[in-house]
């Protein structure tokens, strides 16, 4: 029970954040897209979109927990996690698109551009993180070396 609560609470927070992001993304990008392409855009969020968006947000949160949490995949480095998460996300978005679930199907180009931007973003973020982690790792290793030099492993009784 304790483990379940410990998993569900962060999952709920992530899902809530994603749903908020999805609605914001829909409104901002939809407005811009409609303005730029003179397409029809309903300046309100349909109820069905919120329900379907919530389900999609939960699915993305579960993927996040699987790839970035400490319970399922424990021994992967960030770069590998990010690539796998991105791939799973693209598959999920493609399924939603093909089944007309949560995603407006009239905006093929927008979804293609959106997916490409997210992929590029994750790739850049992963690369920058990897550089940062390697640099920090060098500092950690220096401290480890100093620790080993300063402290001898305990002598027998």
């Amino acid at each position: 029970m304790k483990k379940l609560i410990a998993t569900v609470i962060p999952l709920k927070l992530i899902a809530g954040g994603i749903l908020f992001g999805l609605i914001g993304f829909y409104m901002v990008v939809g407005t811009l897209y409609a303005r730029l392409t003179s397409a029809d855009f309903e300046y309100s969020v349909p109820f069905a979109f919120i329900i379907q968006g919530a389900v999609l947000a939960i699915a993305i949160a579960v993927l996040w927990e699987v790839f970035f949490g400490e319970n399922v995949i424990t021994k992967w480095r960030f770069f590998r996690r990010a690539i796998a998460f991105n791939f799973a996300l693209i598959v999920l978005v493609a399924i939603c698109y093909l089944t007309s679930f949560a995603l407006p199907t009239g905006w093929e180009h927008l979804w293609l551009i959106g997916t490409a931007v997210i992929t590029l973003g994750i790739a850049v973020m992963s690369g920058l993180n990897e550089i940062y982690y390697r640099k920090t790792g060098a500092r950690y290793n220096e401290m480890l070396r100093i620790y080993k030099q300063k402290h001898d492993q305990a002598k027998p009784l």
């Binding site: 970035f68 480095r77 982690y133 390697r134 790792g137 950690y140 290793n141 480890l144 492993q153």
Partner: peptide
Amino acid sequence: IYKIASLCPDF
């Protein structure tokens, strides 16, 4: 700790 070869921070 004495058997650690290297450390690298992660996400």
